[in-house]
């Protein structure tokens, strides 16, 4: 089985538990999900629902206890460190909640870092498009300490996009930002999916952030329990409120 056309990343019956014996904690209990290409997907759920674990497993940052994970045409499960490193470098982009940039590099160097690490040439045209989209043209020579939080996060977005990865994973990208900066970042992610066809997967607990997504998947106790397509913030909030009463149903 491979991730067929139209699917950027796929999880098949993924289980993930930590520890062993009595102390074992199951973070993911048989999660299967297809993440469509060129879509902006949000993964939501309360604390401890397994949403971050799911993202880490999909991105090759963490291994699965059982099941399979695919990104693009690559089977992630079973890859060794070198393969995982190359996967992260070439097929995946990351945006973290905080500490996204290297303090010793300028904004421009930070953006092109994945390409430099891989020894690849920068596609100048694409770089310009990305930089103009995030609005950082006049900040390229600045060091991270000279940038605001929102600007730093936009640099991180640009970095994630510049290598045209199969999937960009964003882990609470707006968690540390004020609402105005957060809106800018989310708007940018939305545009990337719509205008550039970039697949984006975002983990968040903020209903407002989730409302920017084309599809929202709800996780609870390691199961996918609901999903909404292009919901409003109210719908998301509402769903979240009722998650407690929802009985987990295996995703088909």
């Amino acid at each position: 089985m491979s991730a067929s056309d139209g699917v950027a990343a796929r999880a098949v019956d993924v289980w993930k538990s930590y520890g062993s014996g009595d102390a074992a904690v199951t973070a993911l209990a048989g999660v299967s999900v297809d993440l469509d290409k060129s879509r902006f997907t949000a993964i939501m759920g309360p604390s401890g629902s397994g949403k971050s674990t799911l993202m880490h497993c999909l991105a090759g940052l963490d291994d699965v206890t059982s099941g399979e994970v695919w990104v693009g045409g690559t089977k992630v499960t079973g890859l060794k460190d070198r393969g995982l490193t190359e996967l992260r470098r070439d097929k995946v982009g990351f945006i973290f909640q905080q500490f996204n940039l290297l303090p010793t590099l300028t904004a421009e160097e930070n953006i092109t870092l994945p390409l430099a690490i891989g020894g690849k040439k920068v596609d100048k045209e694409w770089f310009d498009v990305v930089v103009d989209t995030v609005g950082l043209r006049d900040r390229l020579t600045h060091r991270p300490t000279q940038l605001s939080g929102g600007q730093q996060q936009r640099v991180a977005c640009a970095r994630a996009l510049v290598s045209r990865p199969d999937v960009v994973f964003a882990d609470e990208p707006t968690g540390n930002l004020d609402s105005q900066s957060g809106a800018e970042v989310l708007g940018f992610l939305q545009r990337s999916a719509r205008e550039f066809g970039q697949t984006i997967v975002m983990v968040t607990h903020d209903p407002n952030a989730a409302s920017y997504a084309d599809r929202v998947i709800f996780l609870k106790d390691g199961h996918i329990v609901r999903e909404l397509l292009s919901p409003s913030a109210e719908e998301v909030l509402d769903t979240m409120k009722h998650l407690d009463s929802v009985v987990a149903v295996p995703h088909v």
Partner: peptide, 16 residues
């Protein structure tokens, strides 16, 4: 540590 983690996350090899 976190910086190194970031570098590894975005694809820096161990040898690098």
């Amino acid at each position: 540590t976190r910086e190194l983690g970031l570098l590894r996350a975005i694809g820096m090899r161990r040898s690098q």
